[in-house]
Structure formats: structure tokens, C-alpha cells
């Protein structure tokens, strides 16, 4: 098909505009990334370090500022994700079953928690009364099931043909066998999606840690990162301190990014499906 000059102009502008848009997302990150490898991190914007070095990482790791929070983040994210995924699939399975008595009522209860959000105060006091303050259990339990993820998973389970369940049941399979042998293998894409959603949520968690954890040794990367970034205001400090703090800042941003970047290719494969399932039918 022949294209008019107007269309060519539009096309050129379009590619330029979208390219620039992508750059607004890439450049800030690349700038910070090069700073972490630079022997002379300075003010100017650039994409390649002035003098390539790994000293910054070595120094920051040796100084021990981020090792502990990094470990905390990894620990919380993995255990939290496993717990949440288990709880969510455990509940999504019966809610997807058309034979479940009062099924509509239970599903309504789940939707209700999305519609009514009375805030963090009662949950905070509940956790305090359960003596779970300063324990990661508080974060994992309060975040136990995301109703949004539960609905996505339930919808997926519902799309599995019922005949499979019925014939398995006639053969004498228990619910556990059906769940493990039939549902989980068939629902692998949704399980992967929800796994990634939960992992990203736990990794990115900030507020609940501020709320339930006061013991500084249990702080995660996100909490540490925010405190270093915001600290800037009330900090005079001499030149050396300033450089050290800046280094910690830059490297922590990159370290906090790495797992997300590693998961991103997988996330991208699944989230389109996830968002469609979740938002169209809810």
C-alpha cells in the first residue's frame, strides 16, 4: 500500500515521540547504573562511568549497610510468596467449584473486602494484640490473600472443564489428588502469574514494614533505601560522608531493582493475561 507524505511524516513523528518516551524511562536508570560503577561519581549526566570500577559495590557490601536488609528482603519475599500462593490456591479451588454450597455468598464476601477498605488501624491493633509486632508473620498474615489475585485464580480454575474433575472423582480421587494432579498442572500459567504478582508485592512492600516492624535489624531494602534518600535533607556532613552516602544510595537503588529486572521477562509473559482476566470480568 502506498503511503502519502503526510502518513510518512506522522509515522516519523510517532516513532520519535515513542522513542523519547522510552528514553525518559531508560535514561534515569542508566545514569544511576553508571554512577555505581564510576570511580568519580559526579554531577554531570552521562551513560558511561568516568572510570570503571567495582570499588563502590565492594565498599558498600563491606561496610555492611545493605547485606542484612537484602537478606531480609529475600527471606520475606520468598516465604511470603509461598504462603500467599498456597493460601490463595487453597481458597480459589473451592470458590471455583459450582457444587460448593453457598458459593455466591462466599464469593460475595471476597468482593466485599475489595469494596470496603476501613484502613490499617484495626489491623495494626489486631497484630499488636496477637503479639506479632516485629515478626515477619505480621506482614505475611495481613497480606495473606490478595482478593484481587484470588479472583484471577478462581476465574482461571473455573475455565477448567468440569468433566475432568467429575471423572477423577468417579475414579475415587480425593480433593487433594485432584488439586495436585489435575488443577495445578493445568493452571500453571495462572499460578506463575500470581506467584510473580505476590513476589513483586512482597519485594516492594514498604508501608506494612514501617507499620509492624520497629526493630531496625529486620528492616528490608525498601525501608533502608527510603531512609537514605530522605535523610539528605537534614544532613550537612563533610565531602567524604556525602560521597559515601551517595554511593550507598546509588548501589541500593540498583540492588533493589535486580530481582524485579530478573523476573521482568517472565512477568511480561504473563501479566497481560493476568490484567485481562482481572479487570474485564473481575
Amino acid at each position: 500500500m502506498k503511503r502519502t507524505s503526510g502518513e510518512k511524516l506522522f509515522s516519523g513523528l510517532n516513532y520519535t515521540l515513542m522513542g523519547l518516551l522510552a528514553l525518559t524511562m531508560l535514561l534515569p536508570l542508566l545514569h544511576i547504573l553508571q554512577l555505581t560503577f564510576s570511580a568519580h561519581p559526579d554531577t554531570s549526566f552521562r551513560l558511561w562511568p568516568r572510570q570503571l570500577t567495582l570499588e563502590n559495590y565492594r565498599y558498600v557490601l563491606e561496610a555492611g549497610f545493605i547485606l542484612r536488609p537484602l537478606w531480609n528482603s529475600i527471606f520475606l519475599s520468598t516465604t511470603g510468596t509461598i504462603f500467599s500462593l498456597a493460601m490463595t490456591s487453597l481458597l480459589a479451588y473451592p470458590l471455583a467449584d459450582p457444587d460448593l454450597p453457598a458459593r455466591r455468598f462466599f464469593n460475595f464476601l471476597v468482593v466485599l473486602t475489595i469494596m470496603i477498605n476501613i484502613g490499617f488501624l484495626p489491623k495494626y491493633l489486631l497484630i499488636r494484640d496477637l503479639r506479632l509486632m516485629n515478626s515477619y508473620w505480621s506482614i505475611v498474615l495481613v497480606g495473606g490473600i490478595s482478593s484481587f489475585n484470588l479472583i484471577i485464580m478462581r476465574n482461571y480454575f473455573q475455565s477448567i472443564p468440569r468433566e475432568l474433575f467429575d471423572s477423577a472423582r468417579i475414579d475415587g480421587a480425593t480433593e487433594r489428588t485432584i488439586m495436585i494432579r489435575i488443577v495445578l498442572p493445568l493452571a500453571l500459567p495462572v499460578m506463575a502469574t500470581i506467584f510473580l504478582f505476590y513476589f513483586v508485592d512482597y519485594w516492594n512492600e514498604y508501608f506494612r514494614i514501617i507499620l509492624y516492624i520497629t526493630d531496625r535489624t529486620k528492616y528490608t531494602l525498601q525501608v533502608i533505601l527510603r531512609s537514605i534518600i530522605i535523610m539528605e535533607e537534614d544532613m550537612g556532613g563533610d565531602e567524604l560522608d556525602r560521597m559515601l552516602i551517595d554511593n550507598i544510595k546509588y548501589t541500593t537503588v540498583i540492588v533493589a531493582l535486580i530481582p524485579i529486572m530478573m523476573l521482568y521477562p517472565f512477568l511480561q509473559r504473563y501479566f497481560t493475561k493476568g490484567i485481562m482476566l482481572g479487570s474485564i470480568k473481575g
Binding site: N204, Q222, L225, V253, L257
Partner: peptide, 10 residues
């Protein structure tokens, strides 16, 4: 997929 903390830090 970046947390608000990371977006803020950047």
C-alpha cells in the same frame, strides 16, 4: 513493577 520507594529514589 518498581516500588514507589525505588521510583522515589530515582
Amino acid at each position: 513493577f518498581l516500588s514507589w520507594v525505588v521510583v522515589g529514589a530515582i
